[in-house]
């Protein structure tokens, strides 16, 4: 469904993403993990059309969309959330979600009905009339999710929607994400919370310093020495193995 090919992104002298490729099959939940500053969010903004890559191409549903602006990609069915939440602060929860719903529903009554439906689905049903600015961190993350969902996407890009949530809030939202996938929405998610990655993702890509260094099933990827080194520093994998050997 999504094919990202050899994407490179330079900011002046800094190469944030370097020749990264990944693909997401229809109906899957695919994870994108990697240390801080690896270029994950940058890759997301390129997929969603917020930045043009220095090189490489993005295809969606077999169609090259590299040159298409963000709002057109949203119409084609790509929705993203923002790592740093971007609520319409002056509006209430219902109005926030309705902006997303208006993408597929021209009439106000329809858009609002759709917004309420989505709000209930992500657990914001009781907060509909609250100003978005008054929501807690968890509430704002749910709002990001709800707005994106209200556009009725085919592909949902989730950028650390679990970051900043406590363990019980994370436990609450994992089934919500699962249910979204079960409804036929394909998901690509950036996530640091490994418990969630293990639970949700069928396939994981690992980005480190702008390069894809590993991919596969979550369990295999976590055991990959290259991945451990990317997170913990050079030689870490060897030290861990040595440590385990001496413990035995």
């Amino acid at each position: 469904m999504l094919d990202v090919q050899d994407i490179t992104m330079r900011f002046g002298g800094l190469v944030a993403v370097s020749g990264a490729s990944l693909s997401v099959p229809k109906g899957a939940i695919v994870g994108l993990i990697g240390p801080n500053g690896a270029g994950k969010t940058t890759l997301f903004t390129i997929i969603a059309g917020f930045q043009a890559p220095s090189a490489g191409r993005v295809a969606f549903g077999g169609q090259d969309i590299t040159g298409k602006p963000a709002h057109i990609r949203a119409r084609l069915g790509i929705a993203r959330t923002f790592q740093i939440v971007q609520p319409f602060a002056g509006l209430n929860v219902r109005e926030n979600i309705a902006v997303g719903a208006y993408l597929r529903h021209a009439r106000r009554a329809d858009a609002h009905a759709r917004a309420e439906e989505v709000a209930r689905r992500v657990g914001l049903g009781v907060d509909l009339d609250k100003p978005a600015a008054s929501l807690t961190v968890a509430g704002r993350k749910r709002l990001e999710l709800a707005r994106a969902l209200a556009t009725e996407p085919l592909l949902l890009l989730l950028d650390e929607v679990l970051a900043g949530l406590n363990p019980s809030e994370i436990r609450d939202i994992i089934p919500v994400i699962q249910a979204i996938r079960d409804d036929g929405v394909t998901i690509l998610m950036i996530e640091h919370v490994m418990q969630a990655v293990m639970n949700l993702c069928s396939h994981v890509h690992v980005l480190a310093r702008g390069r894809m260094i590993a991919q596969g099933a979550p369990r295999d990827v976590c055991a990959d020495p290259a991945v451990i080194e990317a997170y913990l520093g050079k030689g870490a994998a060897g030290r861990i193995e040595a440590g385990e050997a001496s413990d035995a």
């Binding site: 969603a48 602006p69 709002h71 929705a79 923002f82 602060a89 208006y102 993408l103 707005r147 556009t151």
Partner: peptide, 9 residues
């Protein structure tokens, strides 16, 4: 919020 609006199509 222009960015959020763009993301919603």
């Amino acid at each position: 919020n222009e960015d959020a609006a763009r993301a919603l199509g």
